[in-house]
């Protein structure tokens, strides 16, 4: 029987949730017996190669590319998981949500104390994805099936969730595994 596929991505996140996934230690050997990884930074597959059972999304949406990737995940995954606080509530990137975009750019590329920008350029190449007005949690953009809170969610949280889904059970986290920090 073909193994179910798992895809992962990091949108406006810090890759901490992916680090936490690696933190399941030797259980990762058991995991690769149970699943194949499809599109994911873990195996560097860039595009979906087929239907995935589970999609794990780290980070919220801060630019148009994040939105496209997230929509692509929704299209290709049966179950989509918001993994970590950034995917759930925007997290640290969402701290800019009350600051006008212009001010953010000025601070980042012109006025910040460590900025070196002799030509005074604000990056605006057409290759660069456009920044959204705000950072959006994933479930503000597409339907998310599960939320795994934490910054990052602990390796045990991710393991429990994946094992539950792979055994066709709903994710029910015990008290110690629901943490927002």
């Amino acid at each position: 029987m073909e193994k179910p596929k798992v895809a992962t991505t990091s949108l406006a996140g810090c890759f901490g949730c992916h680090m936490s996934l690696l933190d399941i230690d030797d259980r990762i050997l058991k995991l690769i017996e149970l699943v194949d990884f499809d599109k994911s930074p873990i195996d560097d597959i860039k595009n979906f190669t087929g239907r995935c059972a589970v999609g794990i999304v780290e980070g919220g949406c801060c630019n148009e590319e994040n939105v496209h990737v997230l929509q692509d995940f929704r299209k290709n995954c049966d179950i989509l998981i918001s993994c970590g606080d950034c995917a759930i509530d925007g997290g640290i990137p969402a701290m800019r949500n009350n600051i006008p975009l212009k001010e953010c750019f000025d601070e980042a590329y012109h006025d910040g104390p460590t900025v070196y920008n002799p030509n005074n350029i604000t990056p605006n190449d057409k290759e660069l994805p456009l920044i959204l007005n705000k950072v959006y949690p994933c479930h503000h953009v597409v339907k998310m099936d599960y939320h795994l809170p934490g910054c990052p969610p602990s390796a045990d949280t991710l393991w429990e969730a994946l094992v539950a889904l792979l055994s066709n059970k709903p994710i029910e986290l015990p008290y110690e595994l629901i943490k927002y920090d």
């Binding site: 918001s82 759930i88 509530d89 969402a94 009350n98 705000k134 949690p137 939320h147």
Partner: peptide, 11 residues
């Protein structure tokens, strides 16, 4: 047992 709030964030 709340994993995520069900309402939209107001920021």
């Amino acid at each position: 047992g709340i994993c995520a709030p069900k309402y939209p964030f107001q920021f």
